[in-house]
Design a protein around this nucleic acid. Structure first.
Lengths: 220, 220
DNA sequence: ACATAAAGTGAATCACCATTCATAATACGA
DNA sequence: TCGTATTATGAATGGTGATTCACTTTATGT
């Protein structure tokens, strides 16, 4: 009487589930939610349609499972990237690095992630998007904390609210990564290109110079 | 025999068309392409379904007309914003300003625009998205030219490729605007918050100091 | 090897929508 | 006002695809 958990059957099931999700991932990311049919997914996964329904209540649940599970992995990795060092610059550098790596190796997921997280996602009613957005938002908050720390410690200049800086950093990564996904451009080998945009001016130079009042951008 | 163009009928037609597109805009941006039915759109516009088809070959064409026409207005406004001044800083400031204004007053369109331009858009096969992306890309190139100029003229430091700077600026605007759309945050009253992130360090200070070699972000 | 339970199958069902087109309403010139 | 042309209407059509479930196949225990 094998303990329910790791029976062979149980492992098999997990494997099947995984294969279904892989097929689904491929088709959803290629054709989008509405244009990928359960039939196709079943064929791709080499199961019968009915079998999909033994694992997932319906198409929507399947999609949700897919997206949230991947997003979890993604967020965990990002979260970890902020723990690696005590130095704020290093933390940010790592964040960018990891984000890049994850994107590189999961590009089909990324399409879905962006579809849900950025541009309006109309696919799913039941608040998948808002759940994802929230988690993403939490991630941004964590990055904001890093900036806040850096500012308190006198490592960074307060050129903007920490939260705004975090939004900015996050979105910059996405933009460059998107460019890379679209093949317009290669993703910066090093995180420094992105960091530079911030740090030229963000990092407090030995001798504090620059602007007269911090806020006003010298204009005519 | 009134010249075919501005006959009353002609004007009426245009008005009707406009009302159809308005209804469509509202529904598409609320529920997405696939979840908005022609029936609904017709009701919302107070026409019969059949009448929609007198104006648009089919749902897809209607959607395309909607998106491209709006996008045109949008791009024209943005383009103009870069012509206002000879000073690069002013040009960028204006770009941000105008982008903000357009977003503010067309938020339902923005959802669609992002859906097409950013996150993977699966809605429409016939290359609407790629057409839009191209135009958007051209816009980015124009901004890049501004940066390039500024750098040549010695107004900006070359902290990154002009193109990269343009991508960055554009995406920063989007991020802040998106935040505003989601109600997480109010859109910066002035463009300066965004500019600051760049210009602290981008603007060449009277006495050239900072970094030892431009490229390497001081790290441990 | 057999009986029973569990898992897998895919044709049939059912709902939903885009699109059409025969008909009705309306506009226009005489 | 009447006859014809133009335009609007919305019920009917046809296709698509999610979901179900009676049946078949496979696994398990004796």
């Amino acid at each position: 009487m094998p303990g329910k958990k790791n029976s062979r059957r149980e492992r098999e099931k997990q494997q099947q589930r995984k294969e279904m999700l892989e097929a689904a991932m491929q088709l959803f990311s290629e054709k989008g939610y509405h244009n990928a049919s359960m039939q196709e997914i079943a064929e791709q996964a080499e199961f019968a349609v009915g079998t999909l329904y033994k694992f997932f209540k319906n198409k929507e649940e399947m999609y949700k499972a897919l997206v949230t599970e991947q997003a979890d992995r993604f967020h965990v990795a990002l979260g970890a990237s902020l723990e690696t060092s005590k130095d704020e610059v290093e933390q940010l550098r790592n964040y960018i690095q990891v984000k890049g790596e994850v994107f590189m190796s999961n590009d089909s997921f990324i399409r879905l992630y962006f579809a849900e997280t950025r541009g309006a996602s109309f696919n799913i009613k039941a608040g998948l998007d808002s759940e994802l957005r929230d988690r993403h938002h939490q991630m941004v908050q964590r990055v904001a904390a890093v900036f806040a720390h850096g500012i308190e410690r006198g490592r960074f200049q307060r050129i903007a609210e920490p939260y705004h800086l975090a939004v900015a950093l996050d979105t910059l990564c996405n933009a460059f990564l998107t460019n890379w996904l679209e093949g317009r451009d290669s993703y910066p080998e090093s995180p420094d290109i992105i960091l530079n945009i911030f740090f030229q001016g963000l990092l407090i130079p030995e001798s504090p110079i620059i602007s007269e009042k911090t806020t006003n951008t010298t204009l005519e």
